[in-house]
Simulated assay, not measured.
Amino acid sequence: MKQREIAVFGGAHIDRRGRIRGVTAPGASNPGSWFEEAGGGGFNAARNLARLGHRVRMISPRGGDAAGEMVAAAAAAAGVIDCAFTFLDRKTPSYTAILENDGNLVIALADMDLYQLFSPRRLQQRAMREILAASDLVLMDANLPEETLAALVSLASSDGRLVAGIAVSPAKVTRFRKCLSGLNFLFMNEPEARALTETDAGQPENWPPLLREAGLAGGVVTRGGGAAVAFDREEACLVLPPALPALADVTGAGDALASGFLTARLSGLDLGRCLRHGIAAANITLRSPSAVSEEMSASNLEQALALVPAPQMLS
């Protein structure tokens, strides 16, 4: 698989996840365990893309603290080129989640105020312009301010490069509304798609026309263990993820799906094969307790692909 130049803009912070051992008791103390690692939608995708053989730069604000050092170490370990700009007097953003015993999310808290300091003016710096000019793919997540996303899409959507976004959450995906037409693909789950369109598709095959009507040229909508739907300007398809015996952790699965899908797209594969690659990458991550699996590689992705069923093309 040919190595591509990729620039990722967005969240690179600390993920803290508590996992409940037994049945979840709302409003009460629950026994469990605590886990901490580097994370962020953009950063998870960047590390997966690097493990899949690409040359990846991560551009994100960071605090001058121990958490920031942990993020830098994780970038180095994954082979990501770290292009952070550091605010020495600020703390690195964090995401704190509580998971049920089966790995599904109960509730999460995002402390992301530092990302608001990533203004559009930073994109005018010579180093940023050079990174954009050299990239085959520009990927961003909705941790960035709305005006920064719009400016980034405007700058990136030229010269035939691929431009994509990761929704991050229902509360943040609406930051993409002003720049949907400049994205080749937006990756989201059903709650995020509902927030973006302010409607419920009912059936997964209804998402492509609804999202096209909202101004999006292409996208992927995931539904947990249900069928995922992908579309571009010409076609749409469904793929049902293979059943897994157990979930280690759902964190990072959507970011991995975006990485597998975009890797296939950069190789010129059709929509159905791209979605199958995305689901295969997500399944590798779902078997790992970490948001980015150490098992992610081009060879393991090909093996995981054998378990993913053929796509169902939609009219």
Rank of each mutant, 00 (worst) to 15 (best):
A150L: 12
L257F: 06
A253I: 12
S299H: 04
S315P: 15
S60G: 14
L52F: 15
I107T: 15
G252D: 02
N104H: 15
V239Q: 08
N189G: 06
W207T: 03
T92L: 05
R57T: 15
S259N: 03
A73K: 11
A151R: 03
A72P: 06
E192T: 06
R212L: 09
G219S: 01
G202D: 10
V8M: 01
L247P: 13
A167V: 00
N300W: 08
A66K: 09
D15I: 06
Y115M: 06
L266P: 08
E294C: 00
A76W: 06
F43L: 04
N30C: 11
M313Y: 15
D15T: 11
P61K: 06
R223N: 07
D102H: 09
F9L: 00
P309E: 14
L137G: 08
L216H: 02
T251K: 06
A28P: 03
G224M: 05
A50N: 11
L266K: 13
V292E: 02
C237S: 05
G40H: 08
T24I: 12
A156M: 00
L88Q: 11
L109E: 03
L305G: 09
G39S: 10
N48T: 09
S299N: 04
A45I: 07
V56H: 02
D141L: 07
A282R: 01
P26E: 05
R62F: 04
V292R: 00
A151S: 07
V221M: 00
R265H: 15
F261G: 04
L155Y: 05
G215Q: 08
S135N: 00
T285P: 05
M188A: 03
A230M: 05
K2H: 09
N189C: 08
D89L: 07
H54M: 10
A142K: 12
E302P: 05
G63R: 01
R265Y: 10
R287V: 02
R273G: 10
P204R: 01
M112D: 00
R55I: 07
A253N: 09
P191K: 01
A291H: 04
P170N: 08
E69A: 15
Q116N: 03
P26H: 10
E234F: 14
G39Y: 10
F43P: 07
A50K: 10
F85N: 10
E198P: 02
T285Q: 13
L99T: 14
V221P: 00
S169P: 13
A67C: 04
V292T: 11
S33M: 12
K172A: 13
G18F: 15
A214P: 08
E234D: 15
W207I: 07
G10H: 01
S94I: 00
E5D: 09
L52S: 14
R122F: 04
S181T: 13
F87H: 10
A12M: 03
R17M: 14
R21H: 14
L88W: 01
S288G: 02
G42W: 05
P289S: 03
N48P: 04
Y95T: 11
E36F: 11
V239C: 10
D255C: 05
S259E: 02
I131K: 02
A156R: 02
A134H: 07
D113Y: 00
D15N: 11
L183S: 08
A46S: 12
G32W: 06
A72G: 05
R122N: 01
E192G: 06
L314W: 07
T174Q: 13
R177S: 14
L152F: 01
L183M: 10
